[in-house]
Nucleic acid binder design. Structure first.
Length: 136
DNA sequence: GCATTGACGAAGG
DNA sequence: CCCTTCGCCAATG
């Protein structure tokens, strides 16, 4: 058998280490798939943040990747309720990606969520954290 | 291969 | 909640 070089570097791997928290979830096929799966499970009339999803997936520091994943949600099946995902301040940061500049807040309004100046009213009251309420 | 951007977040002011 | 800086990681130029 081959033996490794004596000048082995101290970096055995560069990819994401398999955290135990991630191992809880069966998936892990793709970061995108995981994000979509969580977003679909957001109850109606509730909202969450990109960071909360990232935290649940174990990549809390990479909330941007959640947002980037959502960037491809437009052609995903089944439909992903992206309107229920906002940033940590409850502002409709992604509304510009919808078909209409008012589509996102109208979707939220239909679910009983009030929006004022692109910001969800009583955001904390509607907040839904997968890491706590979707605890599996 | 480096620089910039992005549906973000935390920390400091 | 305003600002700026930094970190994060992938895509894009």
């Amino acid at each position: 058998m081959k033996k490794k070089k004596s000048s082995e570097k101290t970096t055995p791997k560069k990819s994401l280490p398999p955290d135990p928290l991630i191992s809880i979830r069966k998936k892990g096929e793709s970061f995108f798939e995981d994000v979509y799966d969580v977003v679909r499970q957001i109850p109606k009339g509730r909202v969450t943040s990109y960071g909360a999803i990232a935290n649940f997936l174990g990549t809390k520091s990479s909330a941007r990747m959640v947002g980037w994943a959502m960037n491809g949600c437009g052609h995903i099946k089944p439909k992903v309720p992206a309107h229920r995902v906002v940033n940590r301040l409850g502002m409709l940061s992604g509304k510009v990606h919808f078909g209409s500049p008012t589509q996102m807040e109208e979707l939220l309004l239909k679910e009983g969520i009030k929006v004022k100046k692109d910001i969800i009213v009583d955001f904390e009251k509607y907040f839904w954290d997968p890491a706590k309420e979707l605890l599996l």
